[in-house]
Design a protein around this nucleic acid. Structure first.
Length: 515
RNA sequence: CGGGGUGUAGCUCAGUCUGGUAGAGCGCUUGGUUUGGGACCAAGAAGUCGUCGGUUCGAAUCCGGCCACCCCGACCA
């Protein structure tokens, strides 16, 4: 078998890039740090959008759109945000080029903008500038708005989906009449993200606040969902920020309360991005390629008719078409977003069967059906589940009559099996450190101060006591390349002693190496 | 911004040390044989060797400048 994909155990980052490229999700573009999202990758994003958008609408939000360009002075108004993003902003300074015969195309120096525009790294500032006009009275609140957009953050180093200079995302920006409602919203939305991650992506997550060192610039606090990848590293998959009155004050957004007083509005913002696709890949995929949980799969089932000649193929193809129709006509339900099961018939007989099977495995189609002459004799088919790769995942002799129902059930089983497997991995690789020595062993650093070459089984999520200070957090990051990922809501609650400083600790927090 | 590496066919790369008119595998096109886990045969199309300059009778190859990308750091919600 031609090895298109490096084994995870051999080189995990290379495996990841191989999967992204061989499954046809995305490729690097000519623009440094920016990717081309190919149809298969974009279809996955569309499925994610659809799932999330429904959850947003169900919680009372509406979509709107704000400009790509933001006057530089807007960003300057919120000091923490300006400081946080200054180093990674793309800046537009001119509005015209000059095309002269015999000269290369160049920027027209006479067309300089009076005020530079930045390409949005996030939209709080320009949105709150609008909210100043929209919010006059407590009756205008809450204002619950989401935007699907692209943003640009000029990162030094990028990786397909996980960190790119331009990425697609959604950003929710809400305004509320009081702190309590805004905080409830912050929690509501992080729970929406948890639901999406666990029920759609089959990706178990830890939920809780970030430490101060990891929070969003301009936020009072940041809640996050944090997932474990197959190499034991953590991936921040979504964040929900309680912004207090910081942006209302920066943009002077006041409303009249019921008792005719003026008050600044309370804010939240929350977002997830195409990074989720990276997380999805690193949670479920294997050495044979992409694995997509059924609820997000653009194609749920591929049917491969087989046969050595036209006479053998014709009845197989007819059976394939019948089965496809049955699958598409199954009653729609919530599990598949009230959409029909997406079935593709692969009738490309030019390629050998093995090639075709491997190709769909590479692309992560959850269920593959094979219908060949031997099956036709028994009015049966072969059903293969992608979460069990290779021949082991094949079930022979599924009667054609009951195949549609069988596959419908199997898709649900696969969704559950993927979640259970991912959760088991995370739980098996979660531990505690009660002393500094234990911690050192869990996050070894080589002589150069680098994190060294660890096998993919080495890293863990580590619960340890921390004194709550920024100072200790920074020290741990520097010495062990490990960061506080999250202070889980449902984590252990016993108090103790910080293993780094010896000071009292209220609660254990989760340390990990991160993407 | 530091350290390392790479630019040769659509893709992956050999050829560079030792200068002599451009190679392989995969992919693609055509025809034929195949078809239950990545088939085979034959013919064919395809490259101003990243770029600019220098040395030379002659440069992918030697020398110099520049550009781009990748990897490792630093940085990063």
């Amino acid at each position: 078998m031609a090895e298109k994909i490096t084994a995870r155990a051999k080189n995990y980052p290379e495996w990841y890039l191989n999967v992204v490229k061989e499954a046809g999700l995305a490729s690097n573009s000519d623009v440094r740090g920016c990717m081309v999202i190919k149809p298969t990758g974009y279809a996955l994003w569309e499925k994610m959008q659809r799932g999330l958008d429904k959850l947003f609408k169900d919680t009372g939000h509406v979509n709107a759109y704000f400009p790509l360009f933001i006057p530089m002075s807007y960003l300057a108004k919120e000091e923490e945000m300006a400081e946080g993003f200054a180093k990674e902003c793309a800046v537009v300074t001119h509005y015209r080029l000059k095309a002269e015969k015999g000269k290369p195309l160049h920027v027209d120096p006479t067309a300089e903008l009076e005020e530079p525009l930045i390409v949005r790294p996030t939209s709080e500032t320009i949105i709150w500038k609008s909210y100043k006009e929209w919010i006059q009275s407590y009756t205008d609140l809450p204002l619950l708005i989401n935007q699907w957009a692209n943003v640009v953050r000029w990162e030094m180093r990028t990786r397909l989906f996980l960190r790119t200079a331009e990425f697609l995302w959604q950003e929710g920006h809400t305004a509320h009449a009081n702190a309590k409602e805004a905080e409830e919203e912050t929690h509501r939305m992080v729970n929406v993200y948890r639901t999406f991650a666990e029920e759609f992506m089959a990706m178990p997550v830890l939920v809780g606040p970030k430490s101060d060192g990891q929070k969003f610039p301009g936020a009072i606090y940041t809640l996050c969902i944090e997932a474990m990848m197959q190499d034991g590293k953590a991936l921040q998959a979504g964040t929900s920020h309680f912004l207090g009155q910081n942006f209302a004050k920066a943009f002077d957004v006041k409303f009249t309360t019921q008792d005719n007083k003026k008050e600044f509005a309370w804010a939240t913002s929350w977002g997830v991005s195409t990074r989720l696709i990276g997380g999805l890949i690193m949670t479920h995929s294997d050495d044979n390629g992409l694995v997509i949980p059924p609820r997000l799969a653009p194609t749920h089932v591929v049917i491969c008719p087989l046969g050595r000649n036209e006479a053998e193929r014709a009845p197989c193809l007819a059976a394939a078409e019948k089965l496809a129709a049955e699958l598409r006509n199954l009653p729609r339900n919530e599990f598949f977003g009230y959409e029909p099961i997406a079935v593709k018939i692969d009738n490309d007989m030019k390629n050998a069967p093995g090639y075709r099977f491997a190709e769909y495995e590479l692309r992560g189609v959850p269920v593959r059906v094979e219908i060949g002459p031997k099956d036709m004799e028994k009015s049966a088919c072969v059903v293969a589940r992608r979460d069990v790769p290779g021949k082991e995942g094949k079930m022979m002799g599924i009667p054609l009559g009951g195949a549609a129902a069988h596959i419908d059930g199997l898709l649900r089983d696969i969704q559950k099996a993927l979640f259970d497997r991912a959760k088991k991995m995370r739980d098996d690789r979660t531990t505690t450190a009660n002393t500094l020595d234990e911690f050192k062993q869990l996050f070894p650093v080589n002589a150069d101060g680098e994190d060294g070459e660890l096998g993919i089984d080495a890293l863990k999520f580590v619960y340890a006591h921390w004194d709550g200070t920024r100072e200790t957090e920074d020290r741990v990051q520097k010495e062990f390349k490990a960061t506080i990922r999250c202070i889980p809501f449902d984590g252990p609650t016993e108090s103790g002693t910080c293993i780094f400083s010896g000071k009292p600790s209220a609660k254990r927090v989760v340390f990990a190496r991160a993407y």
